[in-house]
Amino acid sequence: MIDRQDVMRMARLARLELSEEEIELYQRDLNSFLVSGRKLQQVDVSKVEGTSHAVAVIGELRPDVVGESLPQEAVLGAGPQVFNGFFKVPRIVEGQE
């Protein structure tokens, strides 16, 4: 069972701000996923190889050739704070002995 704490933790990890109603909504939804999941667990898959991708594509590789990048203004346009061509971010960690 997914409880209220689980939902809040997942929201925190994904940087989502949820209202009280949304927390209840997602707790209900996620639990119904688990119910469907339990049904799938009854299927015998002992002879099936694990799947990580929906389609079995062979990885296509790209030759090592340099192409166009975006102009600096376009790149920096996505940041709330910039300084001298850099993105500016607040303090990251605190040190101690």
């Binding site: 061509g85 850099f86 993105f87 500016k88 971010v89 607040p90 303090r91 990251i92 960690v93 040190g95």
Partner: peptide, 13 residues
């Protein structure tokens, strides 16, 4: 100059 006591950091991608 050090991560432990910087007020802010600059990022280059």
């Amino acid at each position: 100059g050090s991560i432990v006591d910087s007020e802010y950091s600059l990022v280059d991608y």
